[in-house]
Amino acid sequence: MGFLSPPPVRKLPLAGEDTARVVEPNGNGASSFVSSGRRAVASTSLAVDRMQVEELSIAYGSKLAVDSVSLPIRQGEVLALIGPSGCGKTTLLRSLNRLTELTKTASLKGRITLDGDDTATFEPTSLRRRVTMVFQQPNPFPMSVFDNVAFVLREQASRRPRKRELKGAVEDALRRAGLWDEVKHDLAHPALRLSGGQQQRLCIARALAANPEVLLLDEPCSALDPQSTQVIEDLIVQLREEVAVVIVTHNLQQAYRIADYVAFMYLGELVEYGPAEQVFGAPKQERTREYVSGAFG
């Protein structure tokens, strides 16, 4: 497999230095993420089609944000959407559980199916219980750790089912998000007291609580420190067995570390879609090659 030569690394000026320097990579590839640090890729033979995006176009007013994109979303794989800012990747992600509908000017063409059913025919609330989302900023609800998860399991605004009946399900969701051991004694504490990384894992637990088919992650680590990022990345890789995972990320290294499939978008178009090794290692399109080697974006 023909790996690229490592991309040049642009260094920001340090105090006292006038200009940014471009550090040429040395030959052993230490400054490049391609060819190193990739997790052991498990077989993706388990992969099951969950969602299918067909000829999807989304416009805000007259501005086209996503231009006839088609791709499959499979359980057993992590799909990473990458591309420069404004390329439509977040819009695409938000359209999967119809959050785009909250933007008044947004209009949508094409079809998205979930297990064969057109998502447009779903009640938005029931679709969003099956396709849940985690956001860039950790945003636990202003209630206890327990209630954050229980809120999702309860009927809309009611307090039923009661706490006792939900204990098992809440514990299960917190365990799946790898948070249980850290919070099991503080379930009654306000969720906003947790650290940023814990808050984000609580958001993931919340998103998993309803046992969704698809988990959408919109740059879930961009507000977190490297350690929390690591924890969440490991978590995402584990989760792909039980839920289809789609992640939007600006961080190419992250996409390389955790994704099985990568979709590169540029100006609303899906430029390239393929296995992570191929997109990063041997991109077929010139624009992909330029982007993953840091030429633009």
Binding site: N97, L99, L102, P124, T125, S126, L127, R128, R129, T132, M133, F135, Q136, Q137, N139, F141, P142, M143, F151, V152, Q156, A157, C203, R206, A207, A209, A210, L216
Partner: peptide
């Protein structure tokens, strides 16, 4: 209250009314 907090509640299948009652009003207390 940042917009993403509302969206987070919609994104787990909550209605606007449930979001307002259980998330927004407590946050605005």
């Amino acid at each position: 209250i940042p917009g993403h907090v509302r969206e987070a509640s919609y994104a787990v299948g909550k209605t606007k009314i449930a979001t307002t009652r259980r998330v927004l009003l407590p946050a605005a207390r």
